[in-house]
Amino acid sequence: MNKYIQKGESGNQEGQEPQKEEKPSSLMEKIQQLGQTNVPQLSSDSKIHCLTIIGQIEGHLALPPQNKTTKYEHLIPQLVAIEQNPKIEGVLIILNTVGGDVEAGLAISEMLATLSKPTVSIVLGGGHSIGVPIAVSCDHSFIAETATMTIHPIRLTGLVIGVPATFEYLDKMQDRVVNFVTKHSKISEEKFKDLMFAKGNLTRDIGTNVVGPDAVEYGLIDEVGGLGPAMKKLNELIEQSKVEDGGLIQ
């Protein structure tokens, strides 16, 4: 494809001064580097910020660079900045994660849940294991029709710090996740645990893979939808919070 573009470009320049042929235009350089060009930039500052939770949620162990990861040392300062910046009115969270570190995931969830600005999350593709609490931590949650969420018990594939009674520690850790999810969504603890310990859904494992509309049916996620409905909802929530703030001042 690059070759074709180059050919076309030089063909256009035939009639022009030869100077240009030596130094390719910045547009051409860009096409060669990535195979795409940019959309025009808007001048104004955006009042809605967007956080992407992608790949694996990184815990205490830094994953090799070929892994796509979400690092909490990146996300948490961003959330603090969003909370402090008066120009930012709302946050959109985009999830496509396989899960990862429980404590890092819960840290992000707690930060999102306690953010004073309106937050809306969309699960696209997948919001598995520890992605579930992150998705439900927002004021309103969306899931794409084709997106899935895997609900399963916590398992030990990493390191647990200083534990004399490992089973009890893991049980407690699991309760933290269950409590968070049931507190921030409409799903009951009983139903969530049923899904978590369901047999026969996952290969040689317990748990459930919940697809978009099912997640809404169980009360885990608020609505099925994508970017458009999520932005609309976020703008509604921003308007609401403005009205509430105005009421307080008077």
Binding site: L34, N38, D45, Q78, V91
Partner: peptide
């Protein structure tokens, strides 16, 4: 960055 505008800045788009 969490600012969507940064992703539209062609000086810093991935691959540059």
């Amino acid at each position: 960055s969490s600012d969507p505008q940064h992703y539209l800045d062609e000086r810093i788009c991935p691959g540059t």
